[in-house]
């Protein structure tokens, strides 16, 4: 499940000598890593050490100043595409659409032409699929609510469900549960692991929570600066300093989040 050794056949996600510089300030330098398909990679490091930048590179939101990133042997597209889903820390679901509307949108984009609208039988089919996902993420009771009317945990569940609908090969998570209370966070972790097992997708998750990183990951990457110049703290970029294979999600994190207890929590 973990990465390939250097010199072997290219991994599913192959990053080589990646470098990112903002102006004169190097953020990342010499990042090389290969990740196998289906891995759940957790990424930790001090703030400002480039882990979110690394995620944005994988997403295609930013372009590296040096090095290459390839997915399945092909260089990554220089802009976001449906192969790579994303969940941000702050909810990025669409505030003008209800829960159901948010979950129907990916189908409307896929089959609804330039205006992304479906009608008749195809609309009903999309609605059914959206409702199935709504059931899966425990939001069936909130179908007609707008995101602003949902709790933080419910918003993140919606964001996760929506991100999965285009069936991305890779799911990127940028501190997805950082703003949630501990109980909700555990439910979300369990839901994420369940969905990861069901879909077999490759997951990259940036987190501040070391415990979470060790509990959930099949592999953990630690970003840090290896060179320090006390006169110029920003003279050098960060790179991967530890790359540790893990057993995978531990049982404690896998306590199922039953819809029943989700509903009870959501009532408050």
């Amino acid at each position: 499940m973990t990465g390939t050794a250097a010199g072997a056949a290219p991994a599913f996600v192959e990053v080589k000598r990646l470098a990112v510089t903002y102006g004169d300030a190097p953020i990342l330098e010499g990042v090389s890593v290969g990740v196998a398909e289906g891995a759940l990679v957790t990424i930790v490091g001090a703030s400002g050490c480039g882990k979110s930048t690394f995620l944005r590179i994988l997403l295609g939101q930013e372009r590296p100043t040096g090095g290459t990133v390839a997915i399945d042997g092909a260089p990554i597209a220089p802009e976001p595409d449906p192969n790579r889903g994303i969940v941000f820390q702050k909810s990025s679901v669409f505030p003008h659409l209800t829960v159901r509307g948010n979950l129907m949108l990916p189908f409307e984009i896929a089959g609804g032409g330039p205006l992304a609208r479906l009608f008749g039988a195809r609309r009903r089919a999309a609605r059914q699929k959206a409702d199935a996902m709504m059931e899966r993420i425990g939001l069936a009771h909130a179908a007609d609510r707008y995101p602003a009317q949902l709790s933080g945990g419910m918003q993140q569940r919606l964001a996760l469900g929506q991100a999965l609908l285009p069936r991305p090969k890779i799911l990127l998570l940028d501190e997805p549960f950082g703003a949630l209370d501990p109980g909700t966070r555990r439910e979300m972790q369990a839901l994420l692991v369940e969905l990861w097992r069901e879909t077999g997708m490759t997951v990259f998750m940036v987190t501040h929570d070391i415990q979470e990183a060790f509990d959930l990951g099949t592999r953990i990457l630690v970003f840090d600066k290896i060179r320090h110049d006390p006169q110029h703290p920003h003279a050098y970029g960060a790179t991967i300093t530890y790359d540790i294979p893990l057993k995978g999600p531990v049982a404690e994190a896998l306590r199922p989040a039953t819809p029943a207890n989700l509903n009870v929590k959501d009532a408050f």
Binding site: L59, Q61, E79, P80, D81, P82, R84, G85, I86, F88, K90, S92, V93, F94, P95, H96, L105, P106, E108, I109, A110, G112, P114, L115, A116, R117, A159, Q162, A163, L165, P166, P168
Partner: peptide
């Protein structure tokens, strides 16, 4: 984040305009 997310859902510029930007 919304604009990025719409792209990860596969939206073209036109679709993004019609479904994400104009309604808001």
């Amino acid at each position: 984040e919304e604009i990025i997310r719409a792209q990860t859902l596969g939206a073209s510029t036109m679709q993004l305009t019609a479904r994400v930007v104009l309604p808001q």
